[in-house]
Structures are given as structure tokens and as C-alpha cells.
Write a protein that binds this DNA or RNA. Structure first.
Lengths: 149, 149
DNA sequence: AGTTTTTCATATGTAGACAAACATTTCTGG
DNA sequence: CCAGAAATGTTTGTCTACATATGAAAAACT
């Protein structure tokens, strides 16, 4: 109103309200999603571990670093994730015969079982995360978010 | 097309494509934002440290746990954050005379200086994070995200 | 060929993020 | 009033996340 236009005429900005900042909101939405994932999926799987497993399922075996790039993790993060998945027998590392630097990472039989058991639950989590929005809003949200990556 | 309706008639779902899942997208958007924040703000401040500082600036002194709730951090997370801010002299802890359990956390003079120096940069980061969207899209995005907290 | 650069995996250190367990203090219900 | 419940802060352990440094292997270059 009058106040608003006065502020604009003076060149002053809106005050900085933490709860209105994208970053703060994004962190909370992701927190809610991650908590939902853990509680729905069980299996003691984290969202990042699931990203690695589902990427291996979708794309097949892959070098560790490349898998990291395909799951938005840097080299040291993906290493830790694969370490833990390997310790649980869901994944195995093989030397790449074609490149002495690379480790080929692939799902084990147990890993494939976990993936097929988890897939429908992961879909459910996506659905539940978006539950407060209607179909049109969901599409808009995903489109906007995709532009911000 | 024909394929699509066949799948629907059979009750089958769309395949699970990792890159289309909200959780995976959210993580990447937040990563980009956090990296942007660190590079624009400097001061060696993280987004969560900034959340604590700006909340104290906005709301005044506060017990440690309550501050955690106001910044979406659990008790052990906010403790670590305040530990580090205190070690840098940006924040101080006082015993609450009214409640023997509580620690009152408040900004120091140095903390207030960092906040005023950082505020305009934090606004810039918000702006840059949303840069790929027009004004209408930004509002829609924030509205949708707010429903997902 | 040999040198430089890049890539890959690893290691270390710092920082969120949360669960679970704990002691202390405060609040509440009977 | 007093016992049980709840809140506050701390500690420990596990897991992401990244910067930086290192050694080894491959690619690119002259």
C-alpha cells in the first residue's frame, strides 16, 4: 500500500525475513523428504544410498567417480556411500580391466533384491512428499526446481 | 500415445527415473544454493550458521534449543553450530536466571557487525539462486515449497 | 619419445543432520 | 506436596558433503 510504494520510492528493500528465503525453505523441505524416506522405506537406507542403488539399477555398472557425478556426489562422498553399501553386500567393486584407475561398481544379487523391494516405496515417498500439491502444482514445482539445478 | 494408454490400462506405472524425483532434485538445488552462498558471502559462514545469526538478529536473544527450533535444527546440531560461532566470538552464551536449564544465546558486537555486513549479500544469494525464474515463477515456487515443509 | 595435464581413487579435516542415551532442572497431575 | 512427565543441554555414533592433498594411471601434447 502507501508504505510499500514509499519504500520503493526510497529504494529501500523488503526486510530480510529468514522464513521467506529459498535456501532456508529448501533445507526444510529436503529434511522433511529425507525423514519421510527413511520412515517409509525402512531397510535402513538413506536417500543418497538409494540414489546410488537406483542409478546402478537404471544405468548398469559404472566407475565409482562417474556414479558420483550421476548422483550429484563428489568423489569423497560417493566413496563413503559405496563403502557402506559394499559392507552390507548390496554392491561390489571390481577392477576395470580397461583402465587401471577405475573401480567398476555394480549391484549384487542382494542389491537387486533391495532395489526391487524398495522401488514401489520410493515412488510412494515421492508421492507423499508432493501430497500437499495438486497435479498441476506438482508439475510447475518440478519444472521450476529443475531450472535451479 | 498408444503405449501410454496401454500402460495405464494395465495399471503399470511410469518407470522410476531418478532425475525426475523431487528428493533428488531438491538435494541438487540446495547444493547449488549452499555453494553460491559460501562463494558470495565469504566470511567462512555456512548457510546454517547464517540462519542462526540472522534469526538472533531478527528475534533477539533466545535459549539454545528454541533457537534450534526456529532455525530447523535439532538440539545436537544447533549445539555444534553455536559452539563454532561462539569460538569465533560472534555469539555468547549466558545462563538464564529464570530457568536453570537454559542457556541464553545472543549476538556479540562482532556478531552484529558480521550480520550487517552479510545481510545484503544474503539477499543477493537469494536473488541469484532464483535468477533462472521470472517474478511470477518465483512466487509460485516459494508458495509450493512452503506447502511442503 | 617424453612431458604435461587430466582423471581416478583415496585420505584427512571440518561441518551439518539426526538418533539415542544421559543428567539436570522445571512443570504437572494426583 | 510429591512422584511422574517434560524440557534443556550434552555426549556419542553414524551418515552426508565438501575442500584439499596425495599417488597412480591414462590422455593429450609437443
Amino acid at each position: 500500500m502507501a508504505n510499500q510504494s514509499l519504500r520503493q520510492r526510497l529504494g529501500a528493500r523488503r526486510p530480510y525475513v529468514l522464513d521467506e528465503q529459498v535456501g532456508f525453505i529448501l533445507r526444510q523441505v529436503y529434511q522433511r523428504h529425507a525423514a519421510l524416506f527413511m520412515s517409509v522405506v525402512g531397510e535402513d537406507l538413506t536417500t543418497t544410498q538409494w540414489a546410488a542403488l537406483s542409478r546402478l539399477h537404471q544405468n548398469g555398472p559404472c566407475s565409482q567417480n562417474l556414479l558420483g557425478r550421476h548422483t550429484a556426489m563428489d568423489a569423497s562422498t560417493i566413496k563413503g556411500v559405496i563403502d557402506r553399501l559394499q559392507a552390507r553386500g548390496l554392491v561390489e567393486r571390481l577392477a576395470d580391466p580397461e583402465d587401471g584407475r577405475r573401480l567398476l561398481v555394480q549391484l549384487t544379487e542382494a542389491g537387486r533384491e533391495v532395489v526391487s523391494r524398495t522401488l514401489p516405496l520410493a515412488q510412494l515417498v515421492t508421492e507423499q512428499t508432493l501430497a500437499p500439491l495438486n497435479l498441476e502444482e506438482r508439475q510447475t514445482l518440478l519444472d521450476c526446481l529443475a531450472k535451479l539445478i
